[in-house]
Simulated scan of single mutants.
Amino acid sequence: MLTGLQIAVIGGDARQIEIIRKLIELDAKISLIGFEQLEHAFAGAVKEKIDEINLQEIDGIILPVAGTNLTGEVDTIFSNEKIQLTEELLKQTPPHCTIYSGITNDYLTSITKKADRKLVLLFERNDVAIYNSIPTVEGTIMMVIQHTDFTIHGSKTVVLGLGRVGMTVARIFSALGAKVAVGARKREHIARIEEMGLEPFYLKDIETVVKDADICINTIPHLVVTASVISKMPAHTLIIDLASKPGGTDFRYAEKRGIKALLAPSLPGIVAPKSAGQILANVLAELMKEDLQRRKENH
């Protein structure tokens, strides 16, 4: 149980609903910031403004998956008001206060470091990323069906990267009957791709491999689908970029060539917010229980 814990949930999307629900179930007290337009009322959660809460009582702050933007603004779909997270604000919390986010950027890393507060990044955890790859792939399948006039079965599908998302994408598209080629840099990844019964290739050979690609799915968060690569693709190729913003595709050149290229980060929150929220809620609950236990032992 999380009895006695005071948690501030700041902004976010429908995934946060599942997180709030789970933490209330575990008896935590919740302050909801940026939820004025949320019609759902939770017993055990209070809607507040960021300047109204007593930060000295806050044991943890839960940010949306994206954290903040580069100026410290926190996105929320449940409020029109801008919410700003600052170093000064974090310094008002107790020293043990932990900040939970999906990912980080220079701004968020910098203010948590300066305020000397612990920052936990949920998407750097293998368990979260692997569970999240399931709704990501379902969303990818949905997008491919919407934006093509051919079946996935029998299509030449090129997957870039064999990380936690890439592996699930490659396996599921192969199970749907696609002819899957997977590009990687590391020799052990090439071996794993071959072991999976898929066609492996080194990323340096990408231009040759995409010459007959129907679908190209990128999971690598830096520029790999360059103008030169896109120039070798057939005109009907669909590019879906699952890497975090700004993706790994030259979208400007794709548009110039008339090739459809879609940036699709945060697919779990779009296609399956309930499942994606439950994944995060379960991990957050475990982390907070461990944290509470440690603090009790130290006292």
Score class of each variant (00 low, 15 high):
L85N: 10
D27H: 15
T148K: 12
N218G: 08
A41S: 13
K113E: 14
D75H: 13
A285K: 07
H96A: 03
T226P: 02
I206H: 07
V169A: 08
I77S: 10
L70A: 04
I206T: 06
I220C: 07
G44L: 03
A184Y: 06
A181S: 15
S155R: 08
L122S: 10
P95W: 06
Q56F: 01
S110W: 00
A14V: 05
F35S: 09
S231C: 08
D149M: 06
Y131H: 10
E194G: 07
K49D: 15
I20R: 11
E207Q: 15
G11H: 13
L262W: 06
F150R: 14
L198W: 05
D116F: 08
I240R: 04
Q84E: 12
E199M: 10
I61Y: 12
G269Q: 04
G247D: 01
F78G: 11
I20Q: 12
G269A: 11
H96G: 06
T109H: 10
S231M: 01
H96Q: 05
I193C: 05
R192N: 08
V224D: 09
R295E: 00
F123D: 06
S275D: 05
G44M: 01
V9K: 08
I103Q: 06
M196L: 15
G11M: 01
I99P: 11
I83S: 10
E81H: 08
V128Q: 09
K22M: 01
E18H: 07
I215H: 05
D75S: 03
R171F: 06
M142I: 05
A170T: 02
V46N: 11
G277K: 02
P135R: 02
I239R: 01
I30N: 06
C216D: 00
D116C: 03
D116E: 14
L26W: 00
A243L: 07
G60C: 07
E48V: 12
